[in-house]
């Protein structure tokens, strides 16, 4: 029983990291109408930014995390401006291929700078392991859970209530109508990439802390998992991305512990396929409303 609870908590913690990444994926999809396959690599860049600033420049952890967020936001916005914006009116396939190209570009760049070896991720926060009788929970997992939950609540409020959040929903629903309200679609897309990249940077810190090592290809697996989580929850839906991410982490962890470590990813994908067969729009995905 204790084992199950501990496993569920570490699943929740892993899942909340996926949820942060999935949130960025789904927001960019909903507003820019594209799948940004380079999103996972932003995590890797963010994690390397922490490694570099801590071990080479001697930054204190809080400053390193801030630097990583800034670095990812700048990178995300530049990628959008240089690679995606010129393709705004191109067919989706051209944009998709470009995104894959950006992903390879970032991986190769990291390979060139940091080499193919795994770099150990510095300890940016240390929280003692919590022991409740027979139940022990890693401190960093609790921090991950607490911080990601706070971010997700904050993001939900931002999208629901703020002027910019409403503008993002308006652009996501109808670009031309949004422009006619005085909303700059380009600026809204830039903001979306900035937010998504900031979330990826935070996810990178937690991912690095959880696994301890970072390499040039580190971003691709959580990137794919987060994409799966976003589809699982209903792509374009923010609550869906959060739910999808958390479920994915829990299922993956349970499968690892009780079925098979090697098969865990296959099981995750099998669950996705079953969900999509039953509900093709994902758990919380809306059927696209017909225009009257």
């Amino acid at each position: 029983m204790m084992d199950l609870i501990a496993n569920l908590i570490s699943g929740l913690s892993l899942g909340s990291i996926y949820a942060l990444i999935a949130l960025g994926y789904t927001m960019v999809y909903g507003i820019a109408k594209m799948l940004n396959f380079a999103h996972g690599d932003i995590i890797m860049v963010g994690a390397f930014a922490v490694i570099t600033t801590v071990s080479m420049l001697g930054f204190p952890p809080a400053l390193a995390i801030a630097a990583s967020v800034v670095c990812c936001v700048v990178l995300g916005v530049c990628v959008e401006r240089i690679a995606y914006k010129p393709l705004r009116k191109s067919p989706p396939l051209a944009v998709l291929i470009t995104a894959i190209g950006v992903s390879y570009f970032l991986q190769s760049l990291a390979l060139l700078i940091f080499g193919s070896t795994q770099h150990s991720f510095p300890k940016v926060f240390s929280v003692p392991t919590l022991a409740l009788g027979a139940l022990t929970i890693r401190g960093d997992m609790l921090v991950t859970l607490a911080v990601t939950t706070a971010i997700m609540v904050g993001m939900s409020l931002f999208i629901a209530k703020s002027r910019t959040g409403k503008a993002m929903r308006a652009v996501s629903e109808d670009r031309d109508a949004a422009e006619l309200m005085g909303i700059s679609v380009n600026r809204t897309i830039t903001i979306t990439f900035a937010i998504g990249s900031a979330l990826a940077a935070v996810a990178g810190v937690f991912y690095g802390t959880t696994y301890g090592f970072i390499g040039p290809y580190t971003g691709s697996m959580p990137g794919i998992k987060a994409f799966v989580a976003a589809v699982f929850g209903g792509i374009g839906s923010m609550p869906g991305a959060m739910l999808g991410g958390i479920l994915l982490g829990v299922i993956e962890n349970l499968a690892k512990r009780y079925i098979s470590t090697e098969l865990s990813d296959a099981i995750v994908f099998a669950v996705l396929i079953i969900v999509l067969m039953v509900k093709p729009t994902g758990l919380l995905g809306k059927r696209v409303t017909e225009k009257v």
Binding site: R163, K166, A167, R169, A170, V292
Partner: peptide
């Protein structure tokens, strides 16, 4: 018309 179908009446006016 092109109102925002997934937003509330009030949110449409806000936009």
């Amino acid at each position: 018309r092109r109102i925002f179908l997934q937003m509330t009446v009030r949110e449409n006016l806000d936009m």
